[in-house]
Nucleic acid binder design. Sequence first.
DNA 1: GTTTAATGTGAAAACGTTTTCCTAAAAGGG
DNA 2: CCCTTTTAGGAAAACGTTTTCACATTAAAC
Lengths: 340, 340
Amino acid sequence: MNLTIKDIARMAGVSVSSVSRVINNSKPVNDHIKEKVEKVIRETNFRPNAVARGLISKSTNLIGVILPQINYISAELINGIEGVANKNGYNIILSNTRLNPDLELNALQLFKDKQVDGIILSSIDMSERHIQLIQDNKIPVVVVGQKTTDYAIPWVDVDNYRPITEIVRYLMRCGHEKIGMIHGPLIDKSAGDSRYRGFIEEMERKNLSVNPKFVGESNFSSKDGYLAMEKILKCEDIPTAVVCASDTIAIGAKNCAEDLGYRIPEDISIVGFDDIELATLVRPKLTTVQVCFETMGSKAMETLLQSIEFKPVNIENYLDYRLIIRDSVKVVADDLGTKI
Amino acid sequence: MNLTIKDIARMAGVSVSSVSRVINNSKPVNDHIKEKVEKVIRETNFRPNAVARGLISKSTNLIGVILPQINYISAELINGIEGVANKNGYNIILSNTRLNPDLELNALQLFKDKQVDGIILSSIDMSERHIQLIQDNKIPVVVVGQKTTDYAIPWVDVDNYRPITEIVRYLMRCGHEKIGMIHGPLIDKSAGDSRYRGFIEEMERKNLSVNPKFVGESNFSSKDGYLAMEKILKCEDIPTAVVCASDTIAIGAKNCAEDLGYRIPEDISIVGFDDIELATLVRPKLTTVQVCFETMGSKAMETLLQSIEFKPVNIENYLDYRLIIRDSVKVVADDLGTKI
DNA sequence: GTTTAATGTGAAAACGTTTTCCTAAAAGGG
DNA sequence: CCCTTTTAGGAAAACGTTTTCACATTAAAC
């Protein structure tokens, strides 16, 4: 039904090999043969079958992308990945693991079966089995949003610890001392655990005690942020500022506080993390840490490309970040002479 | 380097065909052969190469998804598509066309080369060339977010006209007469043109004149929504309510109005369209039209599946919608006895 | 007990390319 | 003018599966 390279060869009166050579110009062919073939290809709109090509060339021009969920942060990440993939002739194939680590392993396997040229993995928790499978598969992998330095698997991530320490110092300089935090799931080493440790340890370093009642946990959703904030605010004593592990949490927390009659930032200051678009759309605009997930994606894809082409790659890739001061933190003391 | 079915056959002491039969259980094989083969497969962790499979079976278990951009609405759409695709053993492969119709054609071609089993196309404007290519390719296609009834290509979309007429009627019942609209690009027949026509025509039907100064255009972004609202509000006379073609536009418009000192909804009422998560996170919560994009995705994928399996399909697939009344519209007159 | 049907198995063809291998012709060197 | 080297192009092998075909062997039918 569909034309094959054999049909083209017959119609042009040349051999199959010559047609292939013209298509890929892999070897010099005589001009008059070349013209004949190109004419037939043009007239028939022939396009070589990519599957057959893949079988023999071992390359599918496909990049597997494994994500724990598909939300607007993933969307930005995908944007970054797709951008540089597309520019280099690759398409991306998606697997949503719905926060289930077993499905991550499945996806890893499946992508190997499908002979993808490389994989970008956003794992929620890199287990031994992950590492094992990645090393057995012998397909280039880049991990995003987690750090896997011990195993020589390249990764791209923000420093999740330092920005939070900067936030704590910033809040202190604004005059806050009773500071709380709503963190994410601690199984998540990066966005969960690291951000939390950054908070706890910086508070200790500054000799500020952390009231356990000022600390809540959430799964990064606005709803959970709302609930965690509710728990914090129903106590006798409440914090003057709450650090949130993500903007989504922060928005939830903000809405809760407002629903309970508190004004932001006059009564309670809130700071987020990620700087998603939402942070600028909400009022007051959210003070937060800017992390560009699109850059995360493009950087990951660039690293993967290098790995695919056997070029040397950096294992550790830290993303830039920036404290973005907007309107959700109240300045109590006025000793902000120098900017951070 | 990697094991092939031949190696398995050799190790199990049987023929290649038998191994294939065991793997696919496509034909009955003797138990003792079956056991031998299964043992070897288990011990070696053998997995058949999907590319070779695809070459002969003509099926790759891949669904091509063509999107004009990747934002949070796409994310929900993808979620829906991926969910049912995954449940049926398919993976999705993505193409971002960056609002460029030529790239849509490219993607259509490319996906054919890659022998995908089906395509979901979110086009911004279905041209003759689109139709031609889709019909030539002979690959099942489902269009989302546009209507292509004339060409027997199945589509899934909301009715964009009626909800807007309902909004207009709702606003009237709330006592509004000076109503404006910020619509989307009119090239977009669905979310752009239809929603706009719904507004204009319903206003006419109700004998309400539309002040041209109350009408603005935007590209669905919050920023553009802000700008369009700014233009409207800088006039002498301003509307009491503004219908927006999307929630993103509405949020932009809302922020603009607030920045200019107007209160929502006391001074100006605003209504959106789509009901993205943002609509509930913003204060006042946005009155809007609920459209579930995840459902749009899953419905599209279900339709595509039927098409792939040569089952009869509905060409026209309207999505449910619902007017969601929240807090961004002020009730002036109090004749809301019956609910819409 | 013979004929027919059903069943299990392996060899080989097929899928649509790229690449290797070979041969014939052209070019170059003495 | 002969021998070697280069070049161009075709035939065929290869990629890793599934499926067809042919052939036994066994079971069923009369």
